[in-house]
Design a protein around this nucleic acid. Structure first.
Length: 282
DNA sequence: CTTACACCCTGCTCGC
DNA sequence: TGCGAGCAGGGTGTAA
C-alpha cells in the first residue's frame, strides 16, 4: 500500500462499530498512502492529504489482500492472500480499497466490532481513540519500574489491569493470560501487589515486564494467533495459537516439566482467564 | 477516581 | 436434525 494511491473505495454500509467519518470515500479517493504504522491495536495509514486513516479490527476484523499476483507471484502467499473477484462480494465484506498498483484490499468483519476513522495527523494523539492510551509494551517504556508505577495502589485483579489499555496499550486477552503464566503470577492477585508501598518494582514486576515482551515478540515472529473463524488454510495464517500454554487449554495438563497442575478457567470482567493454579499462586 | 457490568453483532459449538 | 444457551482476538458507556 505504501506509495500507492486509492483509485476506488467501496464503502458497503454506513457504519461498523461506529459510523464511518463524513465523506469517507471522497477523503480517501485519489490520496496516496505515504506510510503505514501502528499504535496499540490501531492500524494507521498516513495519507498525502495530511490525514491518517485509523483502522481497528475489533474481534473478527481482517484485511484480505489481493496483490494482483505481484508480491506473491512464485513466492509464499501474503498473509490473508486471496483473489478478489470484481462484483463478487463475500459475506461481511464492508470496505474494498482498489489501489493504483493493482492491489485490492478488502476489510471483512463478521461482528463489526472494528471501525475506521479519519483524523488530521496533527490531531492524532488528541483524537478520541488515542487520548489516555497507555505505554507501548514493546517499547523501552515497558520495564519492571514502569509496571510497578502503573499498578501501584490498584486493587483490581492483575488480569484486569493488564487488559486496561490506559495502562499498557496493546495487550489482549490471549497475551495477558500467556504473560501471566510465564511470569508465574496469579490473575486474581491485586495489581498493586507488584509494587512496593513506594512504587518500586518487586521481582514479580520485573518478571512480568520480561514475560510480556517475550510473549509478544514470539507471537509476532510466529505471525500472530489465528483462532477459530479464519477463512482459509493456505499456509499464510498465524501460528502462535499452537504455542499457547494456557489460553483455551482448560482441563489440560500444565506444560511446565514436572508440574502436575491442570489448567483452569475463571471469568474476570466477563472475559475468560486461563491459568495454572500450581505455577501461578495467589 | 476507581471497579463492575451490559452492550454492540454474528457465528460457531455444545448439550439436550 | 433442530434448537437454545453460552461463548468468542475488543472497547465503550453507564452505574455504583
Amino acid at each position: 500500500m505504501v506509495g500507492a494511491r486509492f483509485v476506488k473505495v467501496e464503502q458497503r454500509r454506513p457504519d461498523l462499530r461506529i459510523p464511518f467519518p463524513e465523506r469517507f470515500v471522497e477523503r480517501l479517493t485519489g490520496r496516496t498512502v505515504t506510510a503505514l504504522g501502528r499504535r496499540a491495536k490501531y492500524l494507521l495509514a498516513d495519507l498525502s492529504s495530511g490525514e491518517v486513516l485509523i483502522m481497528h479490527l475489533g474481534m473478527t476484523g481482517r484485511f484480505l489482500v489481493d496483490d494482483g499476483g505481484k508480491a506473491s507471484g512464485g513466492g509464499p502467499p501474503l498473509i490473508g492472500a486471496y483473489r478478489h473477484t470484481a462484483g463478487g462480494v463475500r459475506a461481511h465484506d464492508h470496505v474494498v480499497f482498489h489501489l493504483s498498483n493493482g492491489a485490492v484490499v478488502t476489510y471483512n468483519d463478521a461482528r463489526r466490532f472494528g471501525f475506521m476513522d479519519l483524523v488530521p495527523r496533527t490531531e492524532l494523539d488528541r483524537s478520541r481513540h488515542f487520548t489516555g492510551l497507555g505505554i507501548e509494551p514493546l517499547s523501552d517504556a515497558l520495564s519492571g519500574e514502569t509496571v510497578a508505577q502503573l499498578l501501584l495502589g490498584r486493587r483490581a485483579p492483575l488480569k484486569a489491569a493488564l487488559l486496561d489499555q490506559r495502562l499498557i496499550a496493546g495487550l489482549g486477552n490471549i497475551y495477558v493470560c500467556e504473560a501471566l503464566y510465564r511470569a508465574g503470577l496469579h490473575p486474581s492477585a491485586p495489581a498493586g501487589s507488584l509494587a512496593t508501598p513506594t512504587g518500586r518494582p518487586t521481582a514479580k514486576a520485573h518478571r512480568l515486564a520480561e514475560a510480556i515482551r517475550e510473549v509478544l515478540n514470539e507471537a509476532v515472529a510466529a505471525g500472530g494467533s489465528t483462532l477459530r473463524d479464519y477463512a482459509r488454510t493456505d499456509g499464510s495464517l498465524g501460528y502462535f495459537q499452537h504455542r499457547f500454554r494456557v489460553y483455551d487449554r482448560e482441563g489440560k495438563p500444565c506444560m511446565r516439566a514436572g508440574c502436575k497442575g491442570e489448567i483452569r478457567r475463571l471469568v474476570q470482567g466477563g472475559r475468560s482467564t486461563f491459568f495454572c493454579p500450581v505455577c501461578q499462586r495467589p
